[in-house]
Write a protein that binds this DNA or RNA. Structure first.
Lengths: 76, 76
DNA sequence: GCGGATTTGTACGTATGTATG
DNA sequence: GCATACATACGTACAAATCCG
């Protein structure tokens, strides 16, 4: 999934990986993406890195974060 | 400048403080704003907090950051 | 051209607060 | 009450590019 040797920043790699899962339909509109803790474990990165990745996805308009609820795939 | 007891997040308080200095003409278009290290010292907050504050200013379109150069007040 | 200082970028870790389930 | 989940804030370390003497 993520490659520490790839010069691409880890948080971008994680963002791309999650974006791919959305595009593939594994994560559907309206559904929550895995929590920060789960993403940490899935990709083996620190929480701060996960948060940066999610921020990228928000910037791209792919997801919406609802405080204390979770982060959801944005409906088309 | 910043008030730890104010429920407003510190990074927003710092962003507002810098925005005020821009608006007041203390920091002029094309000029660099103080470095992250300087802002840390000026406001007594951690670097991460400063970086979040600068990110807010970028989102507001007030400044532009050039890697390894600095962050500059955006020309009108 | 060289080397150190500066400045931003990335990454990790930890603690606490607040709201939700 | 407890577990979950995001928000804020602190700290550290190293990398990369730039600037300046």
């Amino acid at each position: 999934m993520v490659d520490p040797l790839d010069p691409t920043p880890l948080y971008v790699q994680v963002a791309d990986a999650v974006a791919a899962r959305i595009k593939a339909g594994e994560l559907k509109p309206g559904q929550p993406i895995p929590s920060e803790k789960t993403l940490q474990q899935d990709y083996g990165v620190a929480r701060g890195t996960v948060r940066q990745a999610v921020a990228v996805l928000r910037d791209r308009g792919l997801v919406i974060t609802v405080p204390q609820r979770g982060t959801f795939v944005k409906p088309a």
